[in-house]
Amino acid sequence: MERLPLERKVLSENDRIAAELRTRFQEHGILCLNLISSPGSGKTSLLECTLESLPRHDRVAVLTGDIQTDNDAARLKRFHFPVKQITTGGTCHLDARMIERHLADWKLEDLDLLFIENVGNLVCPASYDLGEAAKVVVLSVTEGEDKPLKYPSIFFKSDLLILNKVDLLPYVPFDINAAAENARRVHPGMEIVKVSCLTGNGLHDWMMWLEQRRRACKPAPATLRS
């Protein structure tokens, strides 16, 4: 028996494409965010609120993933920003090749901000790098506050936790402090914002976070082309 060393990532092909995408995003000063949550936590609602509050001329686009239907793209298109549905046909996550393919007929030089709404799933999307600058995980108060402990990988890898549907707090037995504590146990120092997409409560904090990240990924003035 002979043992041949392999020593590479199982997902090396995905990672290669993701690294290429990341380089392209950086070259164009695009902030790319990968939004991940369970089904029904409010990723699409959050994007609706976000797109609604951005100026019409803003250079924003959305790729939205689902196993079936283009319902989410239809919901998001009414804000007049470029939106494309990625229908995976069964696959429980987006991968870098899907992103590359669906970006093909968009001009990156026309964009500053790209949202990728992943397939609703707290497990599988954690394994696939999409070339994003940051992952953002959404958890709603109708879920359990122990979700970060049950699905640590995605909370560990995400820069920001959005606790959504806080308008329902008076009606559900959800301990929001325990949820935040659990998230920070898995990911010490994790940034957290609490929002309600229904009332608009807390959305300002999310928009501030977004603005800060957008500024941070702009190229230095010396390298700006006219």
Partner: peptide, 27 residues
């Protein structure tokens, strides 16, 4: 994630996220 030796909170992850191919045995 606090250091059990010196109680520092300045710690970094060095393992646990692997998804690697290591070897292939052939005959």
């Amino acid at each position: 994630s606090q250091c059990p030796q010196c109680a520092s909170l300045e710690t970094e992850c060095i393992g646990g996220q692997e998804l690697d191919l290591v070897y292939l045995e052939v005959e």
